[in-house]
């Protein structure tokens, strides 16, 4: 198994493995040096006062953080569910044999993927002004759900379409050969398997929606409908202190980190199944 050519090149230089080891030590050295520099320069009492002021922590926790956290969850989940339903419809349209359905879905997807989410939110916030008769159901919540859901649907539909296409053709053929019509075949055979396949990317979409819900402030929220970001920002502004924002940020992580771990676990599981 040894090739004679390899021995000929063995002039006394550092072996690749030794060199890799040396480079690794240099990297550790740089890291330690930077850490020491930061600790030497940093003004810890000041940092603590700006980011973690104890009385501000207490105020932030007691003045409605729970409501804000709940609102963020309500905004995100509603938008995600709407996006999921609309995204599934769009994905099926993209795969339709009827040309105009494909084109319409394509135009929709390109349009809403190209726009900043905040612009869509602004537009929906202004819609009742532009059309005096228009009433979006569920008020502020309905407006946020619709705007964020419409954008999320554009992204999710591509994921869902990929999932549908990843279901082996034989599954459809088996269902059809048993006499199942196209509708039940899609609903009972294709979609359940497609969603199983795209669970990890869909959970990522949910995380993105959670973060996008921080844009809800743009439509002008009342105090009871504040989301985490708006709540934290208002408190931070009035007190000229970052502590409320830090706490709001930690709340986002409270939502998104478990989801991230969930995605990891699902991905490991699907990797094992293959």
């Amino acid at each position: 198994m040894t090739s004679p050519a390899a021995t000929a090149g063995r002039v006394r230089r550092t072996s690749p493995r030794k060199r890799a080891q040396r480079i690794r030590w240099i990297q550790y050295g740089i890291l330690v040096a930077v850490l020491i520099a930061i600790i030497a320069v940093a003004d810890f009492p000041q940092i603590q006062k700006v980011f973690f002021r104890t009385d501000m922590i207490r105020d932030t926790l007691t003045q409605g953080l729970g409501t804000a956290l709940l609102n963020t969850i309500i905004y995100s989940v509603g938008a995600f569910v709407l996006g999921l339903v609309l995204g599934t419809v769009l994905a099926l349209m993209r795969l339709s044999s009827v040309g105009p359905y494909r084109w319409l879905a394509g135009i929709y997807i390109e349009f809403f993927r190209g726009l900043p989410t905040i612009v869509v939110l602004m537009a929906f916030g202004l819609l009742p002004l532009a059309f005096p008769g228009l009433q979006i159901p569920f008020g502020i919540y309905g407006t946020v759900w619709t705007a964020l859901g419409i954008v999320a649907a554009a992204y999710m539909s591509e994921t869902i379409r990929a999932g549908i296409q990843a279901v082996p053709k034989g599954q459809v053929e088996a269902a059809r050969s048993l006499g199942m019509p196209t509708g039940p075949t899609t609903r009972k055979i294709v979609l359940p398997q497609a969603f199983r396949i795209i669970m990890p990317p869909l959970t990522n979409e949910l995380i993105l929606v959670v973060k996008d819900s921080s844009l809800a402030y743009i439509i002008g929220l009342s105090a009871t409908s504040f989301d985490l970001t708006k709540y934290g920002r208002d408190l931070a502004n009035t007190n000229a202190n970052l502590t409320p924002l830090v706490i709001a940020g930690l709340c986002y992580l409270l939502i998104t980190l478990p989801l991230t771990f969930l995605v990891r676990r699902m991905e490991r599981k699907t990797a094992k199944a293959r």
């Binding site: 082996p168 599954q171 048993l178 398997q193």
Partner: peptide
């Protein structure tokens, strides 16, 4: 119909 690749509904 019975297929070469079985095509059982995996879910």
């Amino acid at each position: 119909m019975v297929f070469q690749q079985f095509n059982l509904f995996a879910h």
